[in-house]
């Protein structure tokens, strides 16, 4: 769904490494205060897209706009409005957490110390620890603080919860929702599909370097499909009549994805003798998995 005045706009982004494809054609628009779930299987181009947006790698073609202005790699005014959390955190191991945070603070003109203190307390991070001694989870917490502490307008988060324990994940989701309330726009790249349905407003699914689906979570839930499992002696006739996409078949039992409304399906099935009928809701995760395949 396209909207007016997107905060982050990516148009026909393409990245080739010589002749090797990174991403082919990625176009997404993120609106103010929106959490946009960026999902896709391994190697689909999620990280390439994010690294291209961040100008770590050079785009082959396409456009990246922030607040309607083309985002140049040296535009430090726009860079100040971005908080970036890479999937793997690599920081200066010779520093303590406190020194790292001080170093980070020194690059921002406005006073961000109060927010830093809040985040350190919220995520329960020990500032005296050396970065080289941090566990994966604590390093992730530090990465989150670094991305959030300057209260950016846009957050670009690549696999933000990997390494966080379940309690800290909940704290993080809460933090995200608070940011959303404040109007922060969030690009949320993840593999964890349950997260997407829980916190995202909209999803963009990338496969083989192209966006193959963009939809509001709300709409996906409204149009939710069902799985139907039928056991019948007339199963072959049913399959023929309904022209089904069968996902499981065992003797006289089949399971298929139902796109029809309940009464339409009942009408179609009424001529047949049915032994057993099981209706299950298709979760958003199931839908994503269908696309992944």
């Amino acid at each position: 769904m396209k909207r007016e005045n997107p905060v982050l706009e990516v148009k026909h982004l393409k990245k080739y490494y010589g002749k090797i494809k990174g991403i082919e054609d990625v176009s997404i628009q993120l609106n103010k205060g929106e959490i946009f779930g960026f999902i896709g299987p391994n190697g689909s181009g999620k990280s390439t897209t994010i690294r291209t947006i961040m100008h770590l790698i050079n785009k082959t073609s396409g456009m990246i706009k922030i607040d309607g202005k083309e985002f140049d790699k040296d535009d430090i005014v726009l860079k100040e409005e971005i908080g970036y959390l890479p999937s793997e955190i690599f920081l200066y191991e010779d520093l303590t957490v406190k020194e790292m945070l001080d170093f980070h603070e020194s690059f921002y003109k406005r006073d961000i110390h109060a927010r830093r203190k809040e985040l350190v307390q919220l995520l329960k991070l020990d500032e005296a620890k050396k970065i080289e001694d941090l566990s994966l989870g604590n390093a992730k917490k530090l990465g989150i603080i670094l991305a959030f502490m300057h209260e950016p307008e846009i957050l670009i988060l690549d696999e933000p919860t990997s390494g966080l324990d379940p309690i800290m994940q909940q704290v993080f989701y809460q933090l995200l929702l608070e940011e959303k309330k404040k109007g922060t726009t969030i690009l949320y790249s993840t593999h964890i599909l349950s997260e997407v349905s829980k916190i995202c407003d909209r999803i963009g699914m990338i496969k083989e370097g192209r966006i193959i689906k963009e939809e509001r979570i709300e709409d996906m839930e409204k149009n939710s499909l069902t799985y139907l499992t039928i056991d019948s002696e007339e199963i072959e006739k049913i399959k023929k009549t309904l022209n089904l996409k069968v996902i499981m078949e065992q003797g006289t039992t089949i399971k298929f994805v139902n796109h029809l409304k309940p009464n339409e399906m009942m009408n179609l099935l009424s001529p047949f003798k049915i032994n057993k009928l099981l209706v299950e809701e298709v979760t958003i995760e199931d839908l994503f998995l269908e696309y992944y395949k």
């Binding site: 961040m54 770590l56 430090i76 690059f107 921002y108 670094l146």
Partner: peptide, 16 residues
């Protein structure tokens, strides 16, 4: 090599 460039690049500073 240490992959700290990903962090450094995200700061509001230019490559220059």
């Amino acid at each position: 090599d240490d992959k700290t460039i990903e962090y450094l690049n995200s700061l509001p500073i230019t490559r220059n």
